[in-house]
């Protein structure tokens, strides 16, 4: 039984690591840990049906263990942003103001065809009309086009993109660059309020340096 216990632990973390290694393309809509849980549970659940010799506890124990781990890992992800990044990764900007970040595409192993296909699925056929495109941690592409509001209404007033510079006390250097501001400037704004990075739940800022800060409770 200890063997089943240990094997379950090893398989759970190994498959998460493998899924992270495989990258976002294979993940689809689920986060890595959620996908691992789904795969393992579905495979385990089929065992007692195929192998009638197996006692039910040999299946129930690993399933319960995986579910408990999933709950604890999701809790830890909320509490520890760095763990969240290690398990789920972080979103990557791939297009900014019509310019494709080729380095980001390479790192994500997205080809130009993949990007264009994802854009076409959002009814965007001209890359130059893309104001901002980001590959989310789930692998999906979020896009904001030029001259349209978020709902795609061409007549609506264009609102500047709000970049999440700080999330749960963590600076996002990628968004700092996209926004055209420096870390020093962010810290100066926080100092004005007499606080530091740790106290920030969310700090959004646009390219005109209009920012909004939500403090931690």
């Amino acid at each position: 039984m200890i063997l089943v216990f240990v094997r379950t632990l090893v398989v759970y973390f190994s498959v998460i690591a493998i899924m992270r290694f495989m990258g976002k393309r294979q993940i689809g809509e689920l986060q890595s840990n959620e996908l691992v849980t789904t795969i393992l549970i579905s495979n385990l659940a089929s065992l007692p049906i195929e192998e009638t010799d197996l006692p039910m506890t040999a299946v129930a124990i690993p399933i319960l263990l995986i579910v408990s781990l999933e709950v604890l890992v999701s809790y830890a992800i909320v509490k520890l942003p760095k763990l969240a990044q290690a398990i789920s990764g972080s979103s990557r900007i791939v297009v900014l103001d019509g310019h494709v970040d080729q380095k980001a595409l390479k790192e994500l192993r997205y080809t130009m065809d993949d990007l264009l296909e994802a854009l076409r699925q959002k009814n965007i056929f001209d890359l130059r009309t893309v104001n901002f495109a980001v590959v989310e941690t789930s692998g999906k592409l979020s896009v904001k086009t030029k001259g349209h509001d978020n709902k795609g209404d061409p007549g609506a007033e264009q609102k500047p993109i709000q970049f999440p510079l700080v999330v749960e006390g963590e600076l996002n250097t990628q968004f700092l660059e996209a926004c055209g501001v420096e870390k020093k400037w962010v810290l100066q704004q926080l100092e004005k309020g007499g606080t530091g990075l740790k106290d920030v739940l969310l700090m959004q800022c646009d390219c005109d340096r209009n920012y909004y800060i939500l403090w931690k409770a």
């Binding site: 039984m1 200890i2 089943v4 216990f5 506890t57 124990i61 319960l64 263990l65 579910v67 408990s68 781990l69 709950v71 604890l72 809790y75």
Partner: peptide, 22 residues
């Protein structure tokens, strides 16, 4: 609540595994 349940399940599983082996 769910965290407490998960921790309880883990402790229970560790206990039952040790008991069954012993």
């Amino acid at each position: 609540m769910r965290i407490k349940a998960a921790v309880t399940i883990l402790i229970f599983l560790a206990g039952i595994t040790a008991f069954a082996t012993f």
